[in-house]
Computed example of a mutant assay.
Amino acid sequence: MSKIINTGMFSGMTREQLLAALEKAQQAYIELSTGNRGVSFSYSQGDVTRSVTYQQASIADLMALIQMLQSALGVGRRRPIRFKF
């Protein structure tokens, strides 16, 4: 059974859900950064033309989300440096 996060904005999510969300956010960041993520699409079918537009997330928003997810998962945290004499 996976541990459920009980604090912060990701409260109620399991570690696996957070990892999946992190993977999606990182993939979206890569696609947006490389220009592979479309925002507006249109197509014609017979005499009808349809279009759909998605709201584009900014790179800064995605980076902030990635950092929050990493923090919730404890990824990238460094242990304090302690010197022993």
Rank of each mutant, 00 (worst) to 15 (best):
residue 2 S to Q: 10
residue 3 K to V: 14
residue 3 K to E: 13
residue 4 I to Y: 07
residue 4 I to F: 04
residue 6 N to A: 11
residue 6 N to M: 09
residue 6 N to F: 10
residue 7 T to M: 08
residue 7 T to L: 05
residue 8 G to H: 03
residue 9 M to Y: 11
residue 9 M to I: 14
residue 9 M to L: 12
residue 9 M to F: 08
residue 10 F to V: 04
residue 10 F to I: 02
residue 10 F to K: 00
residue 10 F to Y: 12
residue 14 T to Y: 01
residue 15 R to Q: 12
residue 15 R to P: 07
residue 15 R to E: 10
residue 16 E to F: 09
residue 16 E to R: 10
residue 16 E to C: 09
residue 18 L to F: 04
residue 19 L to T: 03
residue 19 L to S: 04
residue 20 A to W: 05
residue 20 A to E: 04
residue 21 A to N: 11
residue 22 L to D: 03
residue 22 L to R: 09
residue 22 L to T: 05
residue 23 E to V: 03
residue 23 E to Y: 07
residue 23 E to W: 06
residue 24 K to N: 10
residue 24 K to G: 02
residue 25 A to W: 03
residue 25 A to R: 03
residue 25 A to T: 06
residue 26 Q to F: 02
residue 26 Q to P: 01
residue 26 Q to R: 10
residue 26 Q to K: 13
residue 27 Q to P: 00
residue 27 Q to F: 07
residue 28 A to N: 08
residue 28 A to D: 06
residue 29 Y to E: 06
residue 29 Y to Q: 09
residue 31 E to K: 08
residue 31 E to F: 05
residue 32 L to T: 12
residue 34 T to W: 03
residue 34 T to V: 00
residue 35 G to S: 10
residue 35 G to F: 05
residue 36 N to G: 15
residue 36 N to F: 14
residue 37 R to W: 06
residue 38 G to Q: 05
residue 38 G to K: 06
residue 38 G to V: 03
residue 39 V to A: 08
residue 39 V to R: 12
residue 39 V to E: 13
residue 40 S to G: 09
residue 42 S to T: 08
residue 42 S to K: 09
residue 43 Y to E: 08
residue 44 S to V: 11
residue 45 Q to L: 10
residue 45 Q to Y: 07
residue 45 Q to V: 03
residue 46 G to A: 00
residue 46 G to N: 01
residue 47 D to C: 02
residue 47 D to Q: 11
residue 48 V to G: 01
residue 48 V to R: 10
residue 50 R to C: 02
residue 50 R to M: 01
residue 50 R to D: 05
residue 50 R to F: 10
residue 51 S to V: 04
residue 51 S to A: 08
residue 51 S to M: 00
residue 52 V to P: 00
residue 52 V to Q: 06
residue 53 T to E: 08
residue 53 T to W: 04
residue 55 Q to H: 10
residue 56 Q to V: 01
residue 56 Q to W: 00
residue 57 A to C: 12
residue 58 S to L: 02
residue 59 I to D: 02
residue 60 A to V: 08
residue 60 A to Q: 09
residue 61 D to L: 05
residue 61 D to S: 14
residue 63 M to Q: 15
residue 64 A to Q: 08
residue 64 A to N: 07
residue 64 A to P: 02
residue 65 L to V: 07
residue 65 L to C: 07
residue 66 I to K: 01
residue 66 I to H: 09
residue 66 I to M: 01
residue 67 Q to N: 12
residue 68 M to V: 04
residue 70 Q to T: 00
residue 71 S to W: 07
residue 71 S to E: 09
residue 72 A to N: 10
residue 74 G to H: 05
residue 75 V to T: 13
residue 75 V to R: 12
residue 76 G to Q: 14
residue 77 R to S: 15
residue 78 R to A: 14
residue 78 R to C: 13
residue 78 R to Y: 11
residue 80 P to L: 14
residue 81 I to L: 13
residue 82 R to S: 13
residue 82 R to W: 11
residue 82 R to Q: 13
residue 83 F to M: 14
residue 84 K to V: 12
residue 84 K to S: 15
residue 85 F to I: 15
residue 85 F to N: 15
residue 85 F to Q: 14
residue 85 F to E: 12
